[in-house]
Amino acid sequence: MSNLFKIFASIDRRVWHLLTFILVGTTLLRPIGLPLKVSPEVKKAYEVIDSLKSGDVVLINFDIAAFGWDEIKGSALSMVPHIFSKEGVKVIFFTDQDQGYIFIERTIAEIGRPMPGYDRFPWYEIHGKKYLQDYINIGFIPGFDKAIAALAQDFRGTVGRNDWYGNNIEKWLDDNGIKSAKDIDLILTLDCAGAQSYWVSYWYIPYKTRILNAMIGVSAPGSIVNYNAGMLEGIVISIRGAAEYQYLSKYYGMALVSMDAFSIIQFMLIIAILIGNIGYYGWERRQEKR
């Protein structure tokens, strides 16, 4: 028995690494389909988007770089098409990350299709919404928090005259009555670097702009605090929140499928901790006492 305790106490970390690879691989390739409960904060986020009215202007911030895309894409690929499905809603894409424009394009390519007669960006149609008629992409503005502050301070001046692709957007902004930050009705910020705190500081505080936030797990504590303080309308936390949103909005995707692997690995972690404790009490602690 003490041999078993000794083994438990001294399991090589590479065993856990290998197990993680094997378990994730097998469950991703053969999902089980476990039931899922929807949390109130995700339901709230869903309801905010679902209640958008014709003429509302939504600014979608892709605070996304490759390091967080795999985690946040479930939210992006369900929340963005949900916004586009609402009739008469106008959308502005923006990114505060230098890689962000790539993920805006990936999202558009995934949920839309090229407009008739076009074969490249930005000329894509999403749920019948056409580029430069219903939505625009202002792309990347450097400076991160300073860019968010600059947009709030002088929206038109910071955006400039052209979109990310060099097309003139002044007429589109004029036609939709977008003169300043006050004319934005809702912000959806898909966060990998915790941009929500800056949107709250520079947009919610002065203009009371409504903000929705989907974020990676690491940024969740900051978002929960601001959600609890009433400064965020709804939050979608990490891949679990994304799966719940996919389930609610019926834009099913990999976040929902990967929930099985997600469960298995979390259980593996609990078992790993349990084994570590058995090894500690059965072997290590005795050694310490001796």
């Binding site: 970390r13 856990w16 690494h17 993680t20 790993a272 570590g276 404790n277 500690y280």
Partner: peptide, 15 residues
């Protein structure tokens, strides 16, 4: 995620 798993297995001990 790998480092967090192995670190949790080794350090989350009820002392």
């Amino acid at each position: 995620v790998f480092y967090m798993t192995s670190a949790a297995a080794r350090t989350f001990k009820v002392r």
